[in-house]
Design a protein around this nucleic acid. Structure first.
Length: 486
RNA sequence: CGGGGCGUGGCUCAGUCCGGUAGAGCGCUGCGUUCGGGUCGCAGAGGUCCCCGGUUCGAAUCCGGGCGCCCCGACCA
């Protein structure tokens, strides 16, 4: 994409801003096949950082990685009634291979429950084989009608955890534990605060007993479902004969869970932190946290400055900072500043002849507003030792800003659908109301306001005043959080 | 699946109404110059005008058919 045109501002057209910013930051590009994307190095680097952090957290909670195949027999998908109903419309199916029509069509996995639990059935005989807690990093395919880079593409990358347990309670605990892992990851790494809670029957995963979710608020105040965990009960184990002999010698069906987050998180990061200059990458996710731009006129200056830049790079790297020198000679410093700001690198260090003389450097943070004071002139040694702390502060600042924005646009104690509609048509955001639990109310809210029930919030997010009236009339049995969603 | 838009150098697009040598800006290459917020100059490379068919002496342009992509809504991580 050419950069000579000004970036659309968020307030003018958030959707256009997103599309432009993703491409200009070189996160991803459209592939020739409709609805699928190429993830470019900068975007993939961010995803790799996410993967590494999540993977460590999965390992720390007793999971191992494995890999299951891309192709799944159609009959497997069809085995679980609700599951097939949910996924059939968006399946991509292989009907021919090796120049011949296949006897049974093969589905390109939209998710792997069926193939995984069919294998678990082979491996699990006794309660001693439980729990079995595996995760896989994979691509999946869901033939979406309308796609957007990262947020919804036909093929996307994700992780899917799949576990089998001896008891309902243990599976329930796993489901909750992984929801907590997701929440921690999203807050601590993406600096993206989330509301966790239970999905309603109509919003839950196809084939699950219950689904929990992490809902994040984007800058346009719409909700992004950022991750889900599912208690699958015995729905899949019954269909795939996943049984085990209990301690008491009784043959029982295992209890399963599954949970996943995807490259959608990259989109969430963009829409949580980006500004009208470009994206902003939280330091913990940034493949490059600090970029050093050498500034010089003559060749004589160049030598010294570039040497100092390399020296600073090594000293920062020794402090554990991911740093690189932008020594491209055909771009002037201003062009480099623009590029790295567009890509959201947290800090830039400028080193020129004047700094060399004073043994100082110029440190500029990505989020500081326009103006002279955004540049900090620091002694070299100080810039080096303080950088890890600056990065940590930057990370926290992003989370606080995002959290403050979410709180400013959370509306509690809303009593009626009319009032709900008013809020959504006005300021927008997350709206908390009482709910009877009746799906008919969800339908009415959807029809009248365009909002959906994002979740029944966990205690951490419930209103201090428990609502007693359902938003659709009558008595409330619980609190619900509503929003327009991606 | 409905509605809208668009297919012309790498990118953004003009040219299409009214047929007549295929253009601009940016990017790219070379040389020089510059470099503390998108340097400047000179020279240069680069095109089956989405595809197929038709009309015509002649089609990017007119006619018919097809394909693709993007955006907006209904369904979805």
């Amino acid at each position: 994409m050419a950069d000579d045109k000004a970036l659309t501002r968020r307030e003018d057209d958030f959707s256009a801003w997103y599309n432009e910013v993703v491409q200009r930051a070189e996160l991803a590009d459209h592939s020739p096949v409709r609805g699928s994307m190429v993830i470019r190095p900068w975007g993939y680097g961010i995803w790799e950082r996410m993967q590494r952090a999540l993977d460590d957290m999965f390992k720390a909670t007793g999971h191992e990685n494995a890999y299951f195949p891309l192709l799944i027999p159609m009959s497997f998908i069809e085995r679980e009634k609700e599951h097939v109903k949910g996924f059939k419309p968006e399946l991509a199916v292989v009907t021919h291979a090796g120049g011949k029509e296949l006897e049974e069509p093969l589905v390109i996995r939209p998710t792997s429950e069926t193939i995984i639990y069919s294998m678990y059935a082979k491996w699990i005989q006794s309660y001693r084989d439980l729990p079995l807690k595996l995760n896989q990093w994979a691509n999946v395919m869901r033939w979406e009608l309308r796609t957007r880079l990262f947020l919804r593409t036909s093929e996307f990358l994700w992780q899917e955890g799949h576990t089998a347990h001896a008891t309902d309670q243990e599976a329930q605990e796993e489901t909750r534990e992984m929801l907590g892992v997701y929440r921690t990851f999203m807050e601590d790494w993406i600096a993206m605060p989330v509301v966790t809670g239970l999905k309603s029957e109509s919003e839950k995963f196809a084939g699950a007993v219950r689904t929990y979710t992490c809902e994040a608020m984007m800058q346009d105040r719409r909700a992004l479902q950022a991750g889900t965990t599912h208690h699958l009960g015995q729905n899949f184990s019954r269909q795939f004969d996943l049984t085990f002999q209990s301690e008491e010698g009784v043959e029982e069906y295992a209890w399963n869970t599954s949970w996943g987050v995807s490259t959608r998180l990259v989109g969430g990061m963009v829409m949580t932190h980006g500004d009208d200059t470009g994206i902003i990458v939280p330091p913990r996710l940034a493949p490059t946290q600090v970029v050093i731009v050498p500034i010089y006129r003559k060749d004589s200056e160049r030598t010294g400055v570039v040497e100092k830049a390399a020296q600073m790079r090594d000293r920062l790297a020794a402090e554990g900072v991911r740093v690189r020198v932008d020594d491209r000679d055909h771009l002037n410093p201003g062009a480099k500043f623009w590029e790295w700001e567009r890509k959201g690198v947290p800090f830039r260090i400028e080193i020129g002849p004047r700094d060399l003389a004073k043994e100082q450097v110029v440190v500029v943070g990505r989020v500081t507003a326009e103006g002279a004071d955004r540049k900090a002139f620091l002694p070299e040694a100080q810039a080096v030792v303080e950088m890890p702390q600056r990065l940590e502060e930057f990370q926290l600042q992003l989370l606080e800003t995002a959290r403050a924005r979410r709180e400013a646009h959370s509306h509690r104690g809303v009593q009626s659908i009319d009032e709900l509609k008013e809020v959504l048509e006005g300021p927008g955001g997350f709206v908390y109301t009482g709910w009877s639990g009746d799906p008919e109310v969800e339908d009415r809210v959807k029809a009248e306001t365009g909002a959906t029930l994002r979740c029944i919030p966990d205690p951490d997010f419930q209103s201090t005043e428990v609502p007693d009236r359902c938003v659709g009339g009558g008595e409330a049995r619980m609190e619900a959080m509503w929003a327009k969603a991606y």
